[in-house]
Amino acid sequence: MQPVATTFFFYFLSAVTVISGLLVITRRNAVHSALALILALIGQAGLYLMLYAPFVAGVQIILYAGGIMVLFLFVIMLVSIEQSLKEEQFSKLWVVGLVSALALGGLFVAVYLKGKGIFPERVMIPPETSNTQEIANYLYGNYMFAFEIASLLLLVAIIGAVVMAKKRI
């Protein structure tokens, strides 16, 4: 199936993503930030679909938007936010933040301008219908060890979260 109106959807989805990213770091209320972040994640899932990566897009929605962000919302509701609403939102580091952001942005621009030749003009269009199967082949073949380590990492995270959040063990 040929994608349609690629240019329009690219600009639309990137606008959604970047504007919601901006809202994430500027909103006073943490719940609004979380909702903006969810919108950014969904927009990014759309970008993945445009990059012929349907499996990553699905994982992004099911794990990030449906799992991690629910965890965030849950915690935001547990910690009362009335007090933090009245406080100063931005720390005194904002000059540092702005400078470092500008420096990073400049670095990226420089790299992209210099490195434009590195990226091949032609892009492969990977077969969309067998994307999941091929990722599975890599995951359980080439990256088997990394996969096992990831499971260990998750185990550590589970134990860590339980130890942190429980009052008395």
């Binding site: 100063e88 939102q89 580091l93 990073l104």
Partner: peptide
């Protein structure tokens, strides 16, 4: 955007 958020928000 993420870097700015990490460095400036409280």
């Amino acid at each position: 955007l993420g870097v700015i958020g990490v460095l400036t928000r409280r």
